[in-house]
Design a protein around this nucleic acid. Sequence first.
DNA 1: CATGAATGAGAATTCATTCAT
DNA 2: AATGAATGAATTCTCATTCAT
Lengths: 185, 185, 185, 185
Amino acid sequence: MSKRKDILKATLDLIHEEGLQSVTFSKIFKKANVGSGTVFNYFSSKEELVNEVYREARIHMGEALLEGYDSSLGLYERFKQLQMNRLKFGMQSPKEYLFIDSYSYSPYISPELRHMEDHSLEVFNSVLAEGQKQGLIRPIDPRLCYQIINGVISSILKGYFVQKYPLDEQQIQQTLEASWKAISL
Amino acid sequence: MSKRKDILKATLDLIHEEGLQSVTFSKIFKKANVGSGTVFNYFSSKEELVNEVYREARIHMGEALLEGYDSSLGLYERFKQLQMNRLKFGMQSPKEYLFIDSYSYSPYISPELRHMEDHSLEVFNSVLAEGQKQGLIRPIDPRLCYQIINGVISSILKGYFVQKYPLDEQQIQQTLEASWKAISL
Amino acid sequence: MSKRKDILKATLDLIHEEGLQSVTFSKIFKKANVGSGTVFNYFSSKEELVNEVYREARIHMGEALLEGYDSSLGLYERFKQLQMNRLKFGMQSPKEYLFIDSYSYSPYISPELRHMEDHSLEVFNSVLAEGQKQGLIRPIDPRLCYQIINGVISSILKGYFVQKYPLDEQQIQQTLEASWKAISL
Amino acid sequence: MSKRKDILKATLDLIHEEGLQSVTFSKIFKKANVGSGTVFNYFSSKEELVNEVYREARIHMGEALLEGYDSSLGLYERFKQLQMNRLKFGMQSPKEYLFIDSYSYSPYISPELRHMEDHSLEVFNSVLAEGQKQGLIRPIDPRLCYQIINGVISSILKGYFVQKYPLDEQQIQQTLEASWKAISL
DNA sequence: CATGAATGAGAATTCATTCAT
DNA sequence: AATGAATGAATTCTCATTCAT
């Protein structure tokens, strides 16, 4: 693995373990096993490094959300696939998921990055729009709609992360169903 | 206003504006208009100060959530009241709401505080339990259930905060309804 | 003596002893006997500190140049007084003199400072102008004229500083005379 | 041009533009368009590199000062030739001239280099000595004498470099004359 | 209580230098 | 020779905290 990747990984790990406010370069050097100067060959400052971690996490999540997505399936199937993908991504990549969830609205992340191109978002919106046209989904502002279903997954995952409860197959199904019921007619 | 309150307010404002990781005492002194030594007459360290901000925000929110709550009302009425209170609190006190939402799981906040007594939580749980007994709410793990309805409000508020959309009366109603549909039978 | 003065003095001493390129904050702290943070309460960066050293040296020299200057004296007397003052200042304050001489044209010193108000310069120019009007001084561009007489003193002092020769009364007189002859008719 | 020359040139340029204290290898690499390792094939350290720049500048100046010097000419002619050469060298090679002028007494330049063989100095001294013997030049300590005439040129050049004034033929003549009058009887 | 100058541990960053290719 | 990624010692600078007034 390249030094660059070592550094990005160590940074994400540290953010997850101790919170962004206590991540220092010194901790990053040690965790990534690189010399102190090395980081600065790749990232000109801590802010840039953290933003790059964010960018890569967003790309990773964007891909995961669309995995196995089949536009020829029925609307509800597609909805469930997308939601399931999000839930699974959160369960499998808790560090990335939490980092994105926590810092998407932080001033530390540059606005350009926050609004980076995101194909999965377009797919989500097209599903919601189609559902509303078909009369399956309630006629709510699509952005509101998106926040609702996203919020259900996000909140469930956070409870899971702090071990409030396990997330077995049944509870996963209940969660997906809840997010569907929340917006469907 | 007392110096103590000046300091707490300045701290919350700064956390909101720049994120906890960029809040320094020096910034707090200036914003609160107090001498640098003054803070230490009230708070023994930065961690204690931030935790106190958290504690007061939690107390404030706890009261707001139960405002006008009437246990003699019907179950759905009570549910709506609680959810409306949460949404309204978020809209009226965005700094406190966001701070609580963002840092409740941060290592910077002491575990005791995180689990501080919270009457509103008990009330929520009793409503959910009663709803499940009455067959109005689906038989899901109550903690899951709580996360779901909480997650809807939280997510809607975050979109509102970044001005994705306004929150007028109609959209508020849609949000509350969505949170109810998500868990009701 | 105030900490601020301690720092300025230590900085000037170090520049004189080792040259600007090897002056570090760490050396300044030790020499000035102050904590490392203290410097930054007074000067926001090394550049600012060095510029302040320059500014104070210029003020000091400006005062010294005009010491005992009497506008009612004859022209040659006044010329000699000014030149003597410069020579004496250099001999008595070699660190300040050399620093000004070496860095007045350095990019490290801000242009505003380089062109700071300087009453002594005006006095010099008025003496030169008057001398030219009276036909005592050759009609050369006054700025050229100023550089010539200044250059004689400066160069003599540098030789003196590296102990090429002593500067006793006779040599001082010869120097002053040389600078006069250089521009007089 | 060889890499070695590229490096020496880039170094001199940087010293001129930003001052020795701000010259870093990284800047040299970029300006000279060589890889970072390349410098160390030619110079074992930064100090050695800078000293080599100094040495070459001194050699260059030494040659320029004696250009067209004809020992069979009259004394004043020879004096003027030498002074003119110095002035012309400064005007044509401001970077080298200023570097020599500024750093000849810096601890960064090795003492051996500072006192390197310099035929032009001997020539100067012989002219001054002869002038004194002939009663054309005042009987001043020859080192003082040398500093005086050198100082006039140096100072005039510095004013010219910061564009205080142009140096056209008339002003050049005035400068040479001034340096002669300063020491002549 | 209120203040702010002083502090020094430690964090961010620079930069000369090495070394494998 | 030429390169440039990697290094870590040295440097600049920050910031929570103390303490005398």
